[in-house]
Design a protein around this nucleic acid. Sequence first.
DNA 1: ACGAGGTCCTGCGAGC
DNA 2: TGCTCGCAGGACCTCG
Length: 275
Amino acid sequence: MPELPEVETIVRDLAPRLAGSRLSSPRIHKTDVLRGISRGRMLRLLDGARIRCVTRRAKHAVLELDSGHRLVFQPGMTGSLLIYPGRLTAEQRRYAVLETGIGGREKLVYRDVRRIGTIRLLDERGWASYTDRIGPEPVDPDFDPVELAARISGSRQAIKKVLMDQRRIAGVGNIYASEALFRARIDPSRPASHLGTPETERLHRALKEVLTDAIAARGTTVRDYRTGTGGSGSFQSLLQVYGRAGEPCVRCGTPLAETHAIDARQTVFCWRCQS
DNA sequence: ACGAGGTCCTGCGAGC
DNA sequence: TGCTCGCAGGACCTCG
């Protein structure tokens, strides 16, 4: 499920191959992923547009176009962005949501099985207001413990839910929130405002480390996530709690616990180490 | 202002 | 074996 490290991997894979390409004959097969724009208008604005560069913001892959527009993909649970060498096979076309020529015979395809993901096309102003509503990037060098404290201290919500709130911090989802809290030895259900300075500092370090490690591993493939080259990530073998309910804690051996009480999402944690 | 809960969407695994 | 049901989840919405 693409969170920050997965989208970062996709963008790093695609950026050198897409920069400078011109979009041709775009097609949109499913419209329910579009936000704030009709299929017809999006197709008109994409056809012939040139990609200036490809970047990441939070969990979004952003194609910046010469026109000043940005084509913004949010892969959600099951979305992927892939380049295919020529005509799509039936299997490649299955679940394709958007496809476009990018020069030569190559096709760029956004594929999404469950279509929880979204696609936007924003002009400069639209992008400015969109990105302003998203919190700071946790892998940015400027993101320090003071910044983290400022972003989370105002909420009495469970710290795990707060970490996943994109308005507060960008790019963190269920997997990396769970992993960071385990590394920092913090109970995921603790109210965010109750964290003291030492805990906030541990969480800050854990968050940076887990995201950096996951980027180095090219992300976590549990099921649908694919890198920009169609491969799998490898961080799933390094997960310490996510998806490991009932297995022994790597630190103390206690069977890992599972709850759905936070945000109705599965949360796995060690009740002994994280308290 | 904040928090809780429902909704979208489809594939898959559990259970009968 | 073949069916139904519920779950997975991020973001957004409504309601209290």
